[in-house]
């Protein structure tokens, strides 16, 4: 008997039944199409402007830094001034999804588009959503947004549009379902920079992932 067979039989034996009847299986499978969210926290159901404020506040609480710009056109300059203020390198690896930004507007930035290499000091990525409840960014992997950008560089800069901020996590899943994007290779929920408490329970930032997470919120679409 194969291992799978034996494990399934053992489960059924312990539960005191055989395999579920096809009608029950169909019912349970159908139920997956109507996912049920239990107890969504009230703090995730604020009106949108307050959601944005909560999102920004939670990002800061989680040790990310935040900036807010009026349009997409201003993002490259905002990146340049952040890096200058922190004394960080200006060599960027950027998600292909952001290739259309006006990079020429910030001539001091050196940009490359693609996945991250271990030598890349700074990455710039879009996000699929931002969740106000805990200041969590949601990123979906794909050719436009390679996963290594989220983890290899010392500094991760994430660009989020105001319209991408939602209250609770379930709203993100609902949006991704509609877009048929619920199952990219990776969904990364990112809340603040990398950290550890493994030495004497002292919380230190910059364990293995980025030492810094900088979030740039863009108020207006397009641009």
């Amino acid at each position: 008997m194969t291992a799978k067979r034996q494990i399934l039989d053992s489960i059924r034996g312990s539960l005191g039944r055989g395999a579920l009847p096809p009608s029950r299986r169909a019912e349970l499978e159908e139920a997956l199409n109507h996912p049920h969210a239990a107890a969504v926290p009230a703090r995730g159901t604020l009106p949108h402007p307050e959601q944005i404020a909560l999102f920004m506040a939670m990002c800061v609480e989680m040790s990310a830094s935040v900036d807010r710009v009026a349009s997409k056109a201003l993002v490259p300059a905002a990146i340049a001034s952040y890096l200058a203020s922190q004394n960080l390198p200006t060599r960027l690896v950027v998600a292909p999804a952001l290739q259309a930004l006006d990079w020429a507007a910030a001539p001091l930035l050196e940009t490359r588009f693609g996945a991250a290499l271990p030598i890349d000091p700074v990455s710039v990525t879009p996000v699929a959503a931002g969740v106000a409840e805990t200041g969590t960014l949601v990123l979906c992997s794909g050719p436009d947004s390679p996963t290594t950008l989220n983890f290899l560089p010392d500094t991760h800069i994430a660009v989020i549009e105001a319209g991408q901020v939602v209250g609770g996590y379930e709203e993100v899943w609902a949006r991704l379902r509609v877009d048929g994007r619920l199952v990219p290779r990776n969904i990364n929920m990112i809340t603040g920079p990398s950290r550890t408490g493994d030495i004497e329970q002292t919380i230190l930032l910059g364990a293995h992932g980025p030492r810094r997470l900088h979030v740039i919120l863009v108020d207006e679409h397009g641009g």
């Binding site: 609480e61 989680m62 969590t136 199952v183 290779r185 990776n186 990364n188 929920m189 809340t191």
Partner: peptide, 15 residues
């Protein structure tokens, strides 16, 4: 913590 720094969903090999 309110939420861990990284929660990652992984489905299958690279596309």
């Amino acid at each position: 913590q309110e939420f861990a720094a990284y929660t990652t969903f992984s489905a299958g090999p690279r596309r």
